[in-house]
Design a protein around this nucleic acid. Structure first.
Lengths: 112, 112
DNA sequence: TGTTATGCATAATAAACTTATGTATTAATT
DNA sequence: AATTAATACATAAGTTTATTATGCATAACA
């Protein structure tokens, strides 16, 4: 089962959603969590993830905390207040998008 | 109600799906049909649509027929045999993607 | 001790859009 | 009658957002 390649635009939403559930996470943890939740369907590449995290931080949606774990430093991210709001907005947009796409997959009668 | 901006990667699927329903359509018709079906939620821009149609044609998924209607020429597209197969594949991929995303929106218990 | 997993990062490239134009005909409005 | 909106196609420049390919470093496993 090859991983789905159709999620362009939704990575940011995925990150924000996870952080609104798990309070704080580090990059590698996010890739593993996504893999676990989607049963391997979605593979977040690091080349996409890290720039995305940096951008969200730069925009003021995430804040950073460094935690040293057995000689290695993890970079934890958590939502700012603004980031929590952004997460809500993005989730609403995603839900709305999915509803919209349903109109295509399962077209109703009388809409022609 | 601003139009959704999250459909990157799904435009091709939308085109193929419409053509598998309506047999043959021309570009402008597609933009109007999408607007109608999604109640204005999705606005297919022409800058995205036409290059997309040209690409699908170049890939052998669409074939073209010109029809003159009151002094103006419409460019009708229809699925080739290969295009019909591609439409099925893309639709399956989209459905799979949406199932996957549901795992995020409505996380199950026991998946941590 | 070598491979796999953990952990972060960036650069080059590609894909797929948006925005801005351009051209032209037909229908509707004022 | 003249202007605007709708119909109809198209491309070019720029942006966003991903992929692929690297690079570096530590920890765990075999």
């Amino acid at each position: 089962m090859k991983s789905s390649k159709l999620y362009k635009g939704s990575l940011t939403t995925i990150i924000l959603k996870l952080l609104s559930e798990y309070d704080k996470m580090y990059g590698y943890e996010i890739t593993q969590k996504v893999k676990a939740i989607t049963a391997g369907e979605l593979q977040i590449t690091e080349g996409a993830l890290y720039p995305s995290l940096h951008k969200l931080e730069a925009e003021g949606f995430l804040e950073v905390e460094f935690v040293k774990v057995s000689n290695r430093t993890r970079k934890y991210y958590k939502l700012t207040e603004q980031g929590a709001k952004e997460a809500d907005d993005k989730l609403e947009a995603l839900k709305s998008y999915m509803e919209t796409m349903k109109a295509f997959l399962y077209p109703k009668f009388g809409l022609e």
